[in-house]
Amino acid sequence: MFEARLANGNIFKMIVESIRELVVDVNIDCSTEELSIQCMDSAHVALVSMSLSQSAFDHFRCDRSLSLGLNLPNVSKIFKMMGRDDTMVLKAEDSADKLMLMFENDKSGTIADFELKLMAIEAEQLGVPDTAYKCSISMPSSEFQRIVRDLQVMGDTCKISCTKEGLKFSATGQIGTGNILMRQNVASEKEEDHVTIDMEEPVELNFALRYLNFFTKATPLSPTVILKMSPGLPIVIEYPIEQLGHVKYYLAPKMEE
């Protein structure tokens, strides 16, 4: 059987929110080590990879690896009923045809329980190699969210270039061009406000702003976001979840013909 108890249930709610605009049906893979998700959007240009270690849970038992096939719009409806401070409990039998969800709140004394029918989802899995990227940038996730949101008024494609000058986001459209440059900045006492740029060689790639905006739904999960780029490769946009896991997005670059 599978049983997991997460004191801060809100983390799981935020994970669901971070992927539900990209994919509809998803398998949550449960193993003795972690809960994980790998899925692509319907156009297969973006991929989400989520991992939440068993150490994130107060109680974690998984006798046999299993996949929980979920419809995210339905899961999201159930999580709307979860309170901010609720503890979440997930339970499934090895046959995995339904998932039990419980939201408990000690303060108010409430226990809400739901039974969700599971689906068999055929999903293509890709092997994503652990590549050394030419540029790695760490920046406040709220800044990244603001930049990709603001640039949407200029156009639908964002050029991200990493040079020794800094990290530049540019968008061009009918009304003109906008550029936002982020320089390395480690002046603040708070590490989460730092911008660090680790560049082996300059990289310049184009991406669909629509997708970059989808990815920023993970902003509440992490104060910092890590961007990794190499020439001609999908960008990696990683939101670490404390020391317990991550949500990573991969997006294929737009190539110029």
Binding site: H44, V45, A46, Q125, L126, G127, V128, P234, Y250, E257
Partner: peptide, 14 residues
């Protein structure tokens, strides 16, 4: 003019 390849052209199928 831009074109976008699917992730299959970058990553191997498992």
């Amino acid at each position: 003019i831009f074109f976008q390849c699917t992730l299959r052209s970058y990553f191997q199928k498992k």
